[in-house]
Amino acid sequence: MVRVLKIDKQVWNHSIKERLIKHSNYKGFRDYVINSVEGDIIGFSYGYTSSPGQYYHDLISNEVSQIEYDKWLVDCFEFVELAVHPLYRNQGYGKLLINELLRGVKNRTVVLTTQSNDQSAHNL
């Protein structure tokens, strides 16, 4: 985890250490890391099973109908973070991080939230 925390500051200019530690204890937590041949981290992704009491689960549930809640948030995997070092962007690593993280996920649905103005996330 220490190596992952080095890249988070390069991607977001702040640390996600406390959040990552908290999330790593959630049910269904999984992560995927890509390393360069030199051993540096190219990128990482992680997520967990979405459950009542978690920030985004509750945020989304307050904005959707019961039918939408049942469709999307019951038995849901929440894709939480995706980070690719700036030097390695636009080379397919984001797609690889997504695909590998989700490989083997057994939940019925997967949700990802992002800021509405994050064009890179929307393009990916």
Rank of each mutant, 00 (worst) to 15 (best):
V2P: 01
V2R: 12
V2G: 00
R3K: 09
V4A: 05
L5W: 12
L5A: 06
K6R: 06
K6C: 00
I7Q: 03
D8F: 01
Q10M: 05
Q10P: 00
V11W: 01
V11H: 01
W12V: 08
S15D: 06
S15K: 00
I16A: 03
I16V: 00
K17A: 08
E18N: 11
L20N: 04
K22A: 09
H23T: 06
H23N: 15
Y26S: 07
Y26A: 10
Y26L: 14
K27I: 13
G28T: 14
F29V: 14
F29S: 10
F29R: 07
F29T: 13
R30T: 08
Y32D: 13
I34R: 04
N35C: 12
N35F: 11
S36D: 11
V37E: 00
G39F: 04
D40A: 12
I41S: 05
I42D: 02
F44C: 06
Y46H: 06
Y46V: 07
T49I: 11
G53H: 12
G53W: 13
G53A: 08
Y56N: 09
D58H: 13
I60T: 09
N62M: 03
V64M: 15
Q66H: 12
Q66W: 02
E68V: 09
Y69M: 06
K71Q: 14
K71G: 03
K71S: 12
W72E: 02
L73Y: 10
D75R: 09
D75C: 11
D75F: 15
C76Y: 10
F77W: 11
E78H: 14
E78D: 10
F79M: 06
F79Y: 14
V84Y: 00
P86I: 06
P86G: 03
L87S: 08
Y88K: 01
R89N: 02
G92I: 04
Y93V: 00
G94D: 05
L96N: 05
L97D: 08
L97M: 11
N99Y: 13
L101A: 12
L101R: 07
L102K: 12
G104Q: 08
K106Y: 06
K106E: 15
T109E: 02
T113R: 10
Q115I: 04
D118T: 03
Q119H: 09
A121V: 15
A121P: 00
A121I: 15
L124S: 01
L124W: 07
L124A: 02
L124H: 09
